[in-house]
C-alpha cells in the first residue's frame, strides 16, 4: 500500500502549536499529583504473594526446614541452586528431620524468580519473598549461602507440622 504524504501547511511548519501542546502536558503534570518515587531511597511495597528472591525459612523451633531433597536444585531452570547434602553422620539434634543441608547456595545472578523451587519443595522450606532488587560488588557476593538465605528468609511455620506429629506418634507408641 502506498501512503500519500500530504505536505505540511505553513502553520504546521512553524511547529509552534505542537510545542505549546507539549508544554501543556508537561505543565499539567508539574502542578498535579506526584507519581514518581525516589528510588532506591524509596521503594514500592510489593503486594502479598509477590515473587521476589527465594530464601530459606526456619520453623518456630529454629530448625532449618530444608531437608536437602534437592528437588529444587533439579527443577531450577537456570541451575541457580546448589546443595551439598550432609553426608552419613546421624544428627541427633534434628531428631526425625534428618538431612539438613551442609550447604545451600543460590546464585542470585542466575535466579529468574520463577518460583519453581517454592512450588516443588515438599517441606515448605523455600519461599520467594519481597526482595526484587539485589545488588553486590562481585559475582561471589551474589551467590547467597545457607547462612545468608536463612537470615533473609526468617521464620515461617507450616500448618501441617508433619515432623512434630511423627515424633509425637512415635513417642506415644513407645510409651506402651
Amino acid at each position: 500500500m502506498i501512503i500519500k504524504r500530504t505536505p505540511l501547511n505553513w502553520l504546521e511548519r512553524l511547529y509552534i502549536p505542537s510545542l505549546i501542546n507539549g508544554f501543556k502536558v508537561t505543565l499539567s503534570h508539574f502542578f498535579g499529583k506526584k507519581v514518581t518515587m525516589q528510588y532506591p531511597e524509596e521503594k514500592w511495597t510489593v503486594p502479598e504473594g509477590y515473587r521476589g528472591a527465594p530464601y530459606l525459612v526456619q520453623d518456630s523451633k529454629d530448625r532449618t526446614k530444608c531437608v536437602s531433597c534437592q528437588l529444587c536444585e533439579f527443577v531450577c531452570p537456570p541451575k541457580a541452586i546448589r546443595i551439598t547434602p550432609p553426608g552419613p553422620e546421624v544428627n541427633l539434634e534434628r531428631g526425625n528431620i534428618e538431612k539438613e543441608p551442609a550447604e545451600f547456595e543460590i546464585n542470585m545472578l542466575r535466579c529468574i524468580f520463577c518460583g519453581y523451587c517454592q512450588e516443588v519443595c515438599p517441606e515448605e522450606a523455600i519461599f520467594l519473598q519481597e526482595d526484587y532488587s539485589l545488588t553486590g560488588q562481585s559475582r561471589e557476593e551474589m551467590i547467597y549461602d545457607k547462612k545468608k538465605l536463612l537470615e533473609l528468609g526468617g521464620v515461617r511455620d507450616s500448618k501441617v507440622k508433619k515432623w512434630d506429629k511423627k515424633a509425637a506418634d512415635a513417642a506415644a507408641q513407645s510409651a506402651h
Partner: peptide, 12 residues
C-alpha cells in the same frame, strides 16, 4: 549404604 547415605541424589 552408610558410605552413600545423604551424599547425592541418584537422579543427578
Amino acid at each position: 549404604s552408610k558410605d552413600f547415605r545423604f551424599q547425592m541424589r541418584v537422579w543427578f
